[in-house]
């Protein structure tokens, strides 16, 4: 097993024109930690992932991975450094098969030889329940399978830090339970996880710490149970005035 990273965001800010989507965010993911992120629509959660993976550049602030400043690294270099992610809106390689979607991730992000990549992809397809569809074109998959593919492809890069963006939505109770077990298994192997999720009960079954984002700010964080009972969360979700 490769060691999990320690990831730090230091005063990260990002604006789109007049909207502030990240407002001097300080956040640390300890080595091997599972962190949950919740917050209302448009709070800046997905943007945070785009900043961590390098698809977006912050206006100011630093991103540090295992003590190394990666703020200026390209997305592909960050992936090779161990950061894997899923997209909220699935972004499959439509004209490639499901297996090929994983293979490219294992060969490039995962740095595996072809022989090892084949076995690794096979295991990840098995783990995510996609093995039977391995040879279908990704573009022909229904939405739920596309979401599974997002998880499987992120895992194929052999991440040490895994960023998951709303992967439980739309699942049945049984499927959701299976997903929770899968993510627990991955976490138990030492992979650090940041999971953005609206399906809170799934999230709480996995994460050790919870962060609440609103208007690009961390408004609450700590032990999940306590955060869920906090005044900030009540205000956001129940509309109770502060």
């Amino acid at each position: 097993m490769r060691w999990a990273n320690m990831l730090e965001l230091r005063a990260i800010s990002k604006t789109f024109g007049a909207i502030v989507v990240a407002d001097a965010i300080d956040l640390t993911l300890a080595s091997g930690e599972a962190l949950g992120v919740i917050g209302p629509n448009g709070a800046g959660k997905s943007t945070l992932f785009n900043l961590i993976t390098g698809l977006l550049r912050p206006n100011s602030g630093r991103i540090v991975l295992d003590g190394v400043d990666i703020t200026n690294l390209s997305p592909e270099a960050r992936c090779r450094a161990g950061i894997g992610r899923s997209f909220q809106i699935p972004q499959p390689f439509d004209h490639l098969s499901v297996f090929e979607n994983l293979a490219v991730a294992a060969l490039f992000g995962g740095g595996l030889s072809e022989a090892d990549a084949i076995q690794h992809c096979g295991r990840m397809l098995d783990l995510t329940g996609l093995e039977a569809k391995a040879n279908r074109l990704a573009g022909s998959l229904p939405l739920l399978d596309r979401k599974r593919l997002e998880l499987a492809r992120a895992l194929a890069t052999r991440p040490r830090t895994l960023l998951l963006d709303e992967i439980a939505g739309g699942l049945t109770e049984a499927e959701c339970h299976e997903l929770v077990e899968t993510i627990r298994t991955i976490h138990a192997e030492g992979v650090g996880i940041i999971w953005i999720e609206h399906v809170v009960h799934a999230l709480l079954a996995v994460v050790q710490r919870l962060v609440v984002l609103n208007f690009g700010k961390v408004v609450a964080q700590g032990v999940p149970g306590e955060v869920m009972r906090s005044r900030e969360v009540e205000t956001i979700y129940m509309g109770v005035p502060a």
Partner: peptide, 10 residues
């Protein structure tokens, strides 16, 4: 097929 996703997988 998808440049952003390709970069995100290395």
């Amino acid at each position: 097929d998808n440049a952003a996703a390709a970069r995100s997988v290395g």
